Amino acid sequence: MVKVEFLGPMSYIPSMELEVNTLQELKEVLGKDSALQQWLEISAVAVNDEIVENLSHPLHNGDKIALLPPVCGG
């Protein structure tokens, strides 16, 4: 299982533990939630605190995935 955390404006969504093998599978599972669909297209993804862009990136038991929405500040 991997743990998925939602940061920033998505932090109201509780963390999840899911059985997925790649980021593509994770995107498909999370995309079923209409509240998350808009965020999936614009958020960066970190696996074990490292930004990953390749959706075929393999996931392993115990990995921590964070969805990082764009932010602005000054």
Rank of each mutant, 00 (worst) to 15 (best):
L68S: 10
I65S: 04
W39R: 05
V45Y: 04
L36W: 13
L30F: 14
E17C: 15
N61W: 11
I51H: 06
G74R: 09
E28W: 06
S15Q: 15
K27A: 01
P9E: 02
P70S: 05
K27C: 07
M10P: 05
V71F: 13
V29R: 10
I13M: 10
V47T: 10
G8H: 04
E53C: 00
S11N: 11
L26V: 09
L59V: 12
N61S: 09
D33S: 12
P70H: 15
S56A: 11
I13D: 08
E17W: 08
G73H: 05
L30R: 02
I13F: 14
H60D: 15
V45D: 00
D49S: 14
N48V: 06
W39C: 07
K64T: 12
G31W: 05
E19F: 08
P14D: 13
S34D: 09
M16K: 14
L23D: 11
L18C: 06
K64F: 06
V71T: 11
L40M: 09
Q24C: 01
A46H: 11
V4H: 02
V20W: 02
A44Q: 14
P70W: 08
P9W: 00
M1I: 04
Q38C: 14
S11C: 02
I65L: 06
G62N: 07
V47E: 00
N61G: 12
C72A: 14
L18W: 10
W39L: 13
A46T: 11
S11M: 15
N54L: 07
